[in-house]
Each structure stands twice: as C-alpha cells, then as structure tokens.
Amino acid sequence: MSAMSEDTLIWTDVGHLDDIPRLGSRVVTTPVVDIAVFRTANDRVFALHDSCPHKAGKLSQGIVHGESVTCPLHSWVIGLADGTAKEPDEGCTRVVPVRLKDGRILLAAGSA
C-alpha cells in the first residue's frame, strides 16, 4: 500500500481497542463481506476478510497466536499482516487496512 493511497482511504471508527480481547477477534459486518478484526498480545490490530482461503472458515472464530490465526475448520494458519496461508498450505485472504489512533480502531472498510 503506497502512502498516496493510504491518504485517499476513508477511515471508519469501528470501536475501541478494548472492545476486542487480547488474542481475540471481533467481526465488522458490511453489506458485502464480514471483516474480522484481530488484536494480538501486544495490542497490534489487523483486519482480514472473515473467510479462510481454504473453505471459507470464519477466521474470526480461530485461535490467535503471534501474528497469525489458526482457522477453526481445518487448522490452516493464516498470517494476519498479509492474509497468506503458512506453508505447506497455499492461499490468501484479503487484507483490510486498519489503523489504531488514540485507542480507537479505524478501518478502511470501503476498500474491502
């Protein structure tokens, strides 16, 4: 994502960091897709389409560890930062730009 397009994104406040438990996830619904917003142990926040590249398992329901989530259906491990499945699995889920500002979670949901 280049700096230019970062600026042109429309950021929506979807809640406070503390609305998501550490090592947990919450869902933001949109008319098109569900977005899973994750919080890591050290309070980094990531957002992905809530759909596993394997068989569309809801990643928001998985176990979060480090900067990955393990899908609840067949245990694929998906990187939170890039949406890519860890080897040996192959596949990628869409990343949604997300920002943390003064504890508020800002999501560029429009770019979903």
Binding site: T12, P21, V27, T29, A109
Partner: peptide, 11 residues
C-alpha cells in the same frame, strides 16, 4: 457477550 455480537456494522 462480545463473542456473540458484531463489533460494528459498516454501511
């Protein structure tokens, strides 16, 4: 309760 509710709905 948070487990069962969406965080937000974006139109």
């Amino acid at each position: 309760a948070h487990e069962f509710r969406a965080l937000a709905a974006v139109a």
